[in-house]
C-alpha cells in the first residue's frame, strides 16, 4: 500500500519535471518576438475596438502604428488628440492636431414636414428598405427611419426620436468613429468638425431634386435656391445638384445663411443665443445697400 503511494508520487514528480523541461524548451525555442511598444500603445488606446480608425481593433491599430514610419495615416477618432499625443510620445513620433468631429444627421424631414405617401410593411432595416425603394415618403434621399445607425453605434450615442422619426446624436457620447455613416444606406450622416464650444452650422438636407419637387416632398427640404451661397461672405457654401453644402473648414459661424434660408434647412446648433433672423437680415440688407452705393459712386468716376 505504502509502496504504491510512493511509486505514484515518484512517477508523477518525474513526469511533471520532464514536461516542465519540455515546455521550458518550447517556450524558449518558439518565442514570438513582439515589439513591447505594441502593448504600451494598446494600453494608451481607449479599448473600444470600434473600428473607427479603419483597423480591426485597438490592438491592430497599435500594431500598425508601431510598424508605420509616421502617424500621418492613422487617427483614433474615439481617443482624439489626447490619445494620439500619447501614442506619438511612446513611439517618439509627432502627430498633427486634428479638430474633434461629431456625427451630424443631414435630414430634417420630420413626420410633420415630410408626409408619408405609402406604408412600408417589410423588415425593419434601412438597408433592406432602401434596396427595395426610395422610402415611404416622396423624398428619395432622406432618412428611411429604421435605425440601422442606432444599431451600428457602439457608444449608445444614437437614438431614434419617436416624434420626428429621425435619429438624434448625443454629442457627449459620439466619438466620431463613423460606424453610423457607413451603416446609413442613404448617406445622410456626415462627420463634421465639432466647432468651437460645439457651435456649428450645417445644411440638414441632402435632397438633390429640383426645388418644387423637393418642397412638395418635404417642407424642410433644401430647394437649392442658392440664397445662402450668395449671402455667405466666406465662400463656405456651394450648391451642387440642387442642394447646398457648408464647408465646415471655411464657415465662420456668422449664421447669415441660416437667417436667409427660406425652408429652414440650415441648422445652427449649440449657439448661446437664439438666432434673431430679422436683425441678421437687416445687417445683410444694410451691407448690400452700402456696397451698392459704393458701386454707384465708383461708376461715374471710372
Amino acid at each position: 500500500m505504502t509502496q504504491t503511494i510512493i511509486w505514484t508520487v515518484a512517477i508523477l514528480t518525474v513526469l511533471g519535471l520532464l514536461l516542465a523541461l519540455i515546455l521550458f524548451w518550447v517556450a524558449r525555442r518558439f518565442r514570438v518576438e513582439e515589439d513591447p511598444r505594441i502593448d504600451e500603445v494598446e494600453k494608451a488606446m481607449p479599448g473600444a475596438n470600434c473600428g473607427g480608425c479603419g483597423f480591426a481593433g485597438c490592438r491592430a491599430f497599435a500594431d500598425a502604428a508601431v510598424k508605420a514610419p509616421n502617424l500621418d495615416n492613422q487617427y483614433c477618432p474615439v481617443g482624439g488628440d489626447e490619445v494620439m499625443q500619447k501614442v506619438a510620445s511612446i513611439l517618439g513620433l509627432t502627430v498633427e492636431k486634428k479638430a474633434p468631429q461629431v456625427a451630424v444627421v443631414r435630414c430634417n424631414g420630420s413626420c410633420t414636414a415630410r408626409p408619408r405617401t405609402n406604408e412600408y410593411d417589410g423588415v425593419r432595416s434601412c438597408r433592406v428598405k432602401a434596396a427595395l425603394y426610395s422610402g415611404d415618403t416622396a423624398c428619395s434621399y432622406g432618412c428611411v427611419g429604421c435605425g440601422d445607425c442606432v444599431e451600428a453605434c457602439r457608444f449608445g450615442a444614437l437614438s431614434m426620436d419617436p416624434e420626428t422619426g429621425l435619429p438624434v446624436v448625443d454629442e457627449a457620447k459620439c466619438t466620431a468613429c463613423g460606424a453610423c455613416a457607413k451603416a446609413c444606406p442613404k448617406h445622410i450622416i456626415e462627420l463634421r468638425n465639432k466647432g468651437p464650444r460645439g457651435m456649428r452650422e450645417f445644411v440638414s438636407c441632402v435632397n438633390r431634386d429640383k426645388g418644387p419637387v423637393a418642397r412638395k416632398a418635404c417642407a424642410n427640404a433644401c430647394i437649392g435656391c442658392g440664397l445662402c451661397a450668395r449671402t455667405c461672405q466666406h465662400g463656405a457654401i456651394t450648391v451642387t445638384d440642387n442642394v447646398s453644402y457648408i464647408d465646415f473648414t471655411k464657415c465662420k459661424l456668422c449664421r447669415e445663411c441660416e437667417a436667409v434660408c427660406p425652408s429652414g434647412a440650415i441648422h445652427g446648433v449649440n449657439f448661446p443665443k437664439e438666432l434673431d433672423k430679422e436683425a441678421v437680415k437687416k445687417r445683410i440688407a444694410d451691407r448690400k445697400a452700402k456696397a451698392a452705393a459704393e458701386a454707384k459712386k465708383e461708376v461715374p468716376n471710372g
Binding site: L132, Y133, S134, G135, A138, S140, R208, D209
Partner: peptide, 8 residues
Amino acid sequence: RKDLAGNP
C-alpha cells in the same frame, strides 16, 4: 423623374 421605386 421618379421611377416605380421612387428613384430618379
